[in-house]
Nucleic acid binder design. Structure first.
Lengths: 176, 176
DNA sequence: GCACGTTGATTGCGCATGCAACTGCTATCT
DNA sequence: AGATAGCAGTTGCATGCGCAATCAACGTGC
């Protein structure tokens, strides 16, 4: 699957038979299609490919085994880890990577299912806190077993400890 | 952001103050929260984090500059690279990672915008082919410049050529 | 040649999400 | 203190997607 573009100018090619930076004229070190060198292309496409595949399968496992979406799971997990197992909506939105409106609806559903509860924020009357319930914790424990096993099998087990270490260091460079 | 679960048994902790595999009792080499060793946790969370951040920003750039979603872009790109710049719906669905129904609607929109056209498949009357139009190619050229620049800046430029090479090799191991 | 299972694509429906507008509360400035 | 700007959260609305049902065409067995 080739998901990286050809940055060539369209005017350079004939409109009927040509291709953008076609394979018939590969410049040195590039594959002639993407404008990327082979290792660049491999790394970037591998990155996209691996993420898509792994997360899709993890999501399916989680849903089949526990009727939980990834966002449900990450929400419960973030709450479980928070001090007193509660978090304000605003602070919950960031780790779960949802907008506030999206989070409102998600929290609504989790509350309806009894996995979390909503409380008024004591020191700020505008705020709402979400807190994970015992039922939510139980489900989280079960779901995390499923999830972790999947992560191990599809990702962690494919690397040596040394590789994981350098990988972690490299990936942490991307976050800025 | 900690998005990896604690696989401990809920019964082990007190319901009010305890935590799942709490930080106060870290087992050797683990962080006490995730059931993962530090390098495992760093690699996996870094992977998720990096992907989420990068793709979100790329998507926003693409949308702001060209009114194109990632799926729009990948679809145009897949068509541009296909022989005769056309592909059957079925064959287009896989690289774009959509279900056929999702692809039907996406192709509908792209056709409405004049970026692709739909043709009956000559050798199979059930089939439909999508072909990128010249307007679509022009937009793709512009969009790919935006996209590639973003990929370089946020991903490729952060690695040395040697790192990219090993990274590509490592990531390719994940696809099975 | 005709019935029947299979395949390619579309459609109806439901759901999760983002954006923008809105409400109610807080904080600041005079 | 009162006006005003800013923030937290929710709601209306639109959109994009998956699932399951559907339809048309292909292919196989008889």
């Amino acid at each position: 699957m080739d998901l990286v573009p050809a940055p060539a100018d369209l005017a350079d090619v004939t409109p009927d038979g040509g291709s953008l930076c076609g394979v018939d004229e590969p410049a040195c070190g590039t594959d002639g299609w993407s404008g990327l060198r082979d290792e660049e292309r491999g790394a970037w496409e591998g990155f996209l490919q691996a993420h898509a595949e792994i997360t899709q399968e993890l999501e399916r496992e989680l849903h089949d085994a526990h009727r939980l979406s990834s966002n449900d799971y990450f929400t419960l997990l973030a709450l479980e880890r928070a001090p007193d197992r509660r978090l304000r909506m605003h602070d919950l939105a960031r780790p779960v990577r949802l907008t506030r409106s999206g989070l409102t609806r998600l929290v609504e559903r989790l509350e309806r299912d009894g996995l979390i509860e909503r409380l008024p924020c004591p020191d700020d009357a505008r705020g709402t806190e979400a807190r994970i319930t015992d039922a939510g914790r139980e489900l989280l424990v079960a779901a995390s077993a499923t999830h972790l096993a999947g992560v191990r099998r599809r990702f962690l087990d494919r690397f040596s400890p040394a590789e994981l270490k350098t990988l972690a260091a490299q990936l942490s460079r991307l976050g800025g």
